[in-house]
Lab assay of single mutants.
Amino acid sequence: MKVMIRKTATGHSAYVAKKDLEELIVEMENPALWGGKVTLANGWQLELPAMAADTPLPITVEARKL
């Protein structure tokens, strides 16, 4: 699914347009965010693609819901 990742004042957030859902990312498998699992505030887990740590945000990526 397409997910937009952006930086907020409190960390990172994910927006899933198909579900009209925006949630804070509360847990990251990798400190650089990319190439691992993230957990959203509502409990969803997404697998993000591997990208460079300095990838500019906001960005829309293809993520997989676990």
Rank of each mutant, 00 (worst) to 15 (best):
A17K: 10
G36S: 04
H12L: 14
G35H: 03
G43L: 02
K2D: 10
A17F: 15
V38P: 01
L21Q: 11
W44T: 05
T55Y: 03
V16Y: 13
L46N: 00
K7Q: 10
A41D: 01
P49R: 04
L66M: 11
I59F: 09
L24T: 11
A52L: 08
A17N: 09
G36Y: 05
E27H: 13
E62V: 14
A17L: 15
K18H: 15
L21M: 13
T60A: 07
L48W: 01
A53Q: 10
H12I: 13
K7M: 10
G11C: 06
A14T: 04
S13T: 13
V61K: 01
K65H: 13
N42I: 04
N30H: 10
L48V: 02
V26W: 05
I5M: 00
G11S: 05
T10K: 13
A41C: 06
Q45H: 09
L57T: 05
R6D: 06
L21E: 07
A32C: 11
L57S: 01
K18L: 14
T55R: 03
Q45E: 12
M4R: 11
L21A: 09
D20F: 12
K2L: 14
D54Q: 07
T60R: 04
E23C: 15
L40C: 04
M51I: 08
K19S: 15
P58A: 01
P56S: 09
P56Y: 07
E27N: 10
E22P: 04
D20C: 14
G35D: 06
L48E: 00
M1G: 03
K19Y: 15
L48C: 00
L40E: 00
R64M: 11
A41M: 09
P31W: 08
K18T: 15
Q45F: 08
W44P: 01
K37Q: 08
L57E: 02
D54I: 06
Y15P: 01
T8G: 07
V38T: 01
T60V: 12
P58R: 04
E22I: 08
T55M: 06
V16G: 01
L33Q: 03
A52H: 12
P56A: 11
A50S: 11
H12P: 07
T10F: 14
Q45V: 15
I5C: 05
A50T: 10
E23H: 12
A63P: 04
V61E: 01
L57D: 03
T55P: 06
A50Q: 12
E29A: 08
L46P: 01
L40Q: 00
V3K: 01
D54S: 09
